[in-house]
Amino acid sequence: MWRWLHPYAKPEATYRLVDKLLPWFAAFTVVSLAVGMIWGLAYAPADYQQGDSYRIIYIHVPSAIFSMAAYFAMAVMGAIALIWQIKTAEWAIPAIAPVGAAMTVVALLTGAIWGKPMWGTWWVWDARLTSELILLFLYVGVMALYYAFDDVRTGAKAASILAIVGVVNLPIIHYSVEWWNTLHQGATITKFERPSIATSMLWPLLVSLLGFKLLTISLVMMRFKNELLRHELHRPWAQKELSADKELSDGV
């Protein structure tokens, strides 16, 4: 049953597959992001409460969702790496982590900027922002651990274990932060409801969700290709692949 998967434990086969898929993913990313953003920014109606500031939702929510999804994917790769000792899964961790961290940063930035007109301050200890901040710490921990070891495989294993521990803790952290937030609802903060959204606003959001999903996957693929090449640099296929890139091999 798993036989079709088996060739992809081989780096070269994985590289060929990713290389073949990446242009398609990138193209669909550009299309869906462009449609989602233009639709959301220009065509979706303004919110009756928040006016046009709510349009930040079209990046804030997708980036928040896929920052968490990327962490989950990283933990799955970690589990595969630990259980079946598949090297390509180990290399997926440094490919995914920075992309997920970038998504987390985007969610934090947009959340803070959205908070300014709504709450009057750049930073509010709102449940979603706080859990995103903690998620960023978790990403930083995984990346720091991955690069802390001299031996790459040990680092990958350590990062895998930490990612799995983190994924078990993530729901606990998320719900405890949410609970904490309802508890400390200060009088100064008038918490605004994320708009219970009308269909005319929902459709562009769904399109941008798709766009961010494809974007996350494309960025991970780009990094993953590099990781594959980096670990196989001494192999002929990697050297051939790299010398096929024109600009450098002719000149410098």
């Binding site: 921990g141 983190g166 803790n169 932060v177």
Partner: peptide, 12 residues
């Protein structure tokens, strides 16, 4: 760096 985020639910 690794542990403090994991301690948060307990703290709360």
């Amino acid at each position: 760096l690794i542990l403090l985020p994991l301690f948060i639910p307990l703290l709360i």
